[in-house]
Write a protein that binds this DNA or RNA. Sequence first.
DNA 1: TATTGTTATACTCTATAACTATA
DNA 2: TATAGTTATAGAGTATAACAATA
Lengths: 142, 142
Amino acid sequence: MVARNAGPAAKADAAAVARRLHEVTDRLRLAFEVTAAAHGLTAPQARLILRLIEPTAMRELSEHLACDKSNVTGIAARLSERGLVVHAPGADRRFKLLALTDEGRSLRAALQLAISETSPAMTRLTASERIALMALLDKLAP
Amino acid sequence: MVARNAGPAAKADAAAVARRLHEVTDRLRLAFEVTAAAHGLTAPQARLILRLIEPTAMRELSEHLACDKSNVTGIAARLSERGLVVHAPGADRRFKLLALTDEGRSLRAALQLAISETSPAMTRLTASERIALMALLDKLAP
DNA sequence: TATTGTTATACTCTATAACTATA
DNA sequence: TATAGTTATAGAGTATAACAATA
């Protein structure tokens, strides 16, 4: 009977998991902002830099950041002033690629390392728990 | 041997889980912003309203939102203009409590429901997977 | 003196709309 | 015409600092 329970009680329980997931997500978002700030970056700047593994068109970056293309112009300008990124010509002359400088690459590596090292997935889970988490993450967001 | 592996390979794997957790967190953050916007709220406004189960002092809200107290003044002012919250006197006359109006309570309930119903924890997991997720969330952020 | 909340200020992110250059 | 990127603009969130009221 218990296993077949799909009534109000089970529904309430599912909602509780949804709320808890949202709560944990919110904490991780804050932790990311702290880590970004520790590297002198705002959250959107950090997201852009993490995405910049190879030279990428502004429009593609705007899709990844889920914001208007006009915003990428500004975010990139601030990073460019600090010598972290440079503009490069694309195949089509309408395109502008954004690429990391050496300094940008160093910062990206440091940021990536800090995110991993401070992640509760790293610090609070055992190896088998990480495997279980990975499986659930793949179901949550394939 | 495999179970005792704590060398570079296992480390890299743990980092991969950390990155993946961050990636999923980022998607859920975007989904939250979409849900908030669908209810006419910005993300910080939605977070404040979700927190406002009972009348709460501005300072306590600023701690929960992890922002300066001066920001709560502005966020609350915008919600107040729309009739979603009201100021109320606190025990100590220095304090101002913020409380939901009837309209604010309705909006909060609708928002909470939308978050639960659209959560991948609700839509993409089985009951037993939700139990496993809950256990991992408790380890990640006790 | 310490605490709560507000105001003033400056910076960043955000979307929209109008613009240029290119295709 | 359509696409990529920029600029102008306005609104919202953010921290800092200075302030008033209260304890």
